[in-house]
């Protein structure tokens, strides 16, 4: 018995190691890679145009300038949004620092606290236009690989992730996300409620090299209940820049004058 055991041990030591299964990618690291594609490093500003369609007809256009600065405390972005179109909203400002959300109206010169559920952008949510670090807000799990069509109808081999919000105040409580296997660029996302009800489907497209990285510059957002309600969100003039921390304080909103101020 003892001899058999020794022979077995020698055989085990002499035999080549069994081939290891290919290591699965870390889903949180994948999410961080996707964030690096979605957002330039550091502070930046971008101009966003939202075109809203119903039954393939353009019904409204909004334009914004978004100033984004990583918070030194949380690593999440602080966002200051200046409305430039339509004329009724021109000059309004929205400030988000974490869960702190303020709306400044130049007509009343007043800053009022609003809730994340407040709607100012038609079918688009406030969170759709703000820069966010998904890896800070969501816990990701890998759900498999799939071939997924992008917004231009081109199929991509993708990693599929399921994201669950880690805070109640984020715009979407759950996201199903498909990332291009080669680049980690987002191809498609389905935004869901906590219970799994589909709110919106987003297609990322019009990839361009911006600040040294190939990034999507257009997101097509399709309503979950009414697929004929579509918002096309275009980003342009994405510029890396330094901004004073005071821009992201509510007391500064009445002083803000865009690039001049």
């Amino acid at each position: 018995m003892r001899k058999t055991l020794i022979l077995a041990m020698i055989a085990a030591m002499a035999s080549p190691a069994a081939p290891a299964a290919p290591a699965l990618p870390d889903p949180q690291a994948l999410l961080q890679s996707a964030d690096a594609v979605r957002n330039p490093q550091g502070s930046f500003s971008t101009e966003i145009t939202l075109n809203e369609y119903r039954q393939r007809h353009l019904i409204a256009t909004s334009s914004l300038v978004v100033y984004s600065q990583p918070s030194p405390d949380s690593g999440q972005y602080n966002n200051l949004i200046k409305f430039t179109q339509p004329v009724d909203d021109a000059g309004k400002l929205m400030l988000r620092n974490g869960i702190d959300l303020w709306l400044f109206d130049p007509v009343s010169s007043a800053s009022i606290r609003i809730s994340p559920q407040a709607r100012l952008l038609g079918q688009a949510s406030n969170g759709d236009v703000m820069s966010t670090v998904w890896a800070k807000d969501y816990a990701a799990t890998l759900t498999g690989d799939a071939s997924v069509a992008d917004g231009d109808g081109v199929s991509h081999p993708c990693r599929a992730l399921h994201l669950v919000a880690q805070r109640p105040d984020v715009t979407y409580q759950a996201i199903d996300l498909w990332l291009d296997q080669a680049t980690s660029a987002p191809v498609r996302a389905e935004y869901r409620t906590q219970e799994g009800r589909l709110l919106k489907t987003a297609y990322f497209r019009h990839f361009e090299t911006v600040l040294g990285v190939t990034r999507p510059t257009e997101t097509v957002i399709i309503d979950g209940l009414n697929p004929d309600w579509v918002t096309v969100m275009d980003s342009s003039h994405i510029v890396a820049r330094t901004m004073p921390a005071s821009w992201f304080q509510r007391s500064y909103l009445g002083r803000f004058a865009g690039d001049a101020g």
């Binding site: 145009t49 075109n51 599929a160 498609r188 799994g196 489907t201 019009h206 697929p227 004929d228």
Partner: peptide
Amino acid sequence: MSSSPATTALAQTGSPLPWLPPGAGAP
């Protein structure tokens, strides 16, 4: 994780985003 109606429609039509008119976007 389930497929949305939008995804299904896209796969069925085989065309990019059939809910948008041609050339839709910012410009």
